[in-house]
Design a protein around this nucleic acid. Structure first.
Lengths: 211, 211
DNA sequence: TCCTAATTAATTACCGACAATTCACCCACG
DNA sequence: CGTGGGTGAATTGTCGGTAATTAATTAGGA
């Protein structure tokens, strides 16, 4: 029956993401090349050879880990493209809240593996990740550009401004901890204030229109 | 003779830093565990066994690489501690210019190895690197605190502000390229403007004193 | 419902490759 | 002549990956 086949695919998919979750944590904690298939197997309570039923090879596991994280990061801000009529300042606030909120929600800060692990990917896989990142960048750039057009933001260089804002969000995974002094919302607010003031237009040059 | 011994030590030290330079580039390009002693030997035109005349083991090479970069980074802003009477705004500008300038000056952007390679260090070595970083942080914090005390800056949290500013500087090694559209000075200025506006006090709350 | 064929998941045993390191031994130079 | 940088070969261990095999699950006809 079709039903049972679907159930099976479902289970396979569940096990796959279970493996990816465990592998992602290890890759971040120990590094990709310092994490052996045996290590992952221990974390998954199975034998190394088993993985080759689900993934082509070790690089394939890394690719799926990075793709998953990157995809979720992009998805978390995708909605901003639709609502082009919302105040760009509020869009920036949303973007920071969403992306940082997503990063903070990951149990381990296995985010940096997306940066550092890129160089271990095959050319095709790397291209796919870059494609996803470009989507993220383009959304961020559009928000900034709309803010400039509407007179809210003033910055000489949209691309660099995007890099700077993305830097403070992404790098939070190096220092932010859920168990720390500040909550996600508090840090979100601080980040937004910093970023917004960093690029906002002088008050002497007020917005041309409201939204 | 003392003279010859000195010359010899000199040569040894030169060769050591030659090795460190080559190894640092490889560690960044390929990752620590994916860089073999043979790879480093090829880059240095010598044989793997040779390294054990200069370093205890592979981890020791990594440690020296990271220590050297971190030390230089800290040194590049150390002078700020002395001149406590200079305008904090100018100190912030100097800090960004110096640190980013140093990062950009490295032939390869082998800076991120300092972040990612930390976990491969022994406990003692890691502690030493953290000690150096703490010096960096404390200088940055002092600059910000002095700016707040003098009424130039307004921020709710000195530590987080420090993280945000350091983030935009350090992460530049991911996207900045000497061969790119913008020069080091141009990017420096953009970074400073962004960071300064991000934490500066409202104009309605002017500085209490000048310097 | 039950039995069997087929498919998929998991495991065991194993291989070739290559890693970091050690050591005995060079040889150049002071 | 003898000290120390340099090296080839050997050691030891572990890695990712494959082949063969077993266990488990599902499909479909009677």
């Amino acid at each position: 029956m079709i039903r049972t086949k679907q159930r099976k695919e479902m289970q396979t998919s569940i096990k796959k993401s279970w493996i990816l979750e465990k592998a992602g944590v290890l890759f971040w904690q120990k590094g990709y090349h310092n994490t052996s298939m045996k290590d992952i197997a221990n974390a998954c309570n199975c034998r190394p050879a088993n993985f080759y039923n689900y993934f082509k090879n070790k690089e394939d596991i890394l690719y799926e880990v990075i793709r998953s994280i990157t995809e979720q990061g992009v998805s978390s801000i995708l909605y901003l493209e639709k609502d082009q009529e919302i105040n760009p300042v509020e869009q920036l606030r949303s973007l920071i809240k969403s992306h940082f909120g997503f990063l903070a929600s990951l149990k381990q800060s296995n985010v940096m593996i997306s940066d550092t692990g890129m160089k271990y990917l095959s050319r095709e896989h790397r291209k796919e990740i870059i494609r996803l990142r470009d989507i993220y960048d383009s959304i961020l750039h559009k928000v900034i550009q709309r803010g400039i057009d509407a007179g809210y933001f003033a910055t000489t260089d949209v691309k660099v401004a995007g890099y700077l804002i993305a830097s403070i969000i992404v790098r939070s995974s190096v220092w932010f901890s859920m168990k720390g002094r500040l909550s996600v919302d508090e840090v979100s607010d601080i980040m937004f204030n910093f970023a917004y003031r960093g690029i906002k237009a002088d008050d002497a040059n007020p917005p041309k229109r409201n939204a």
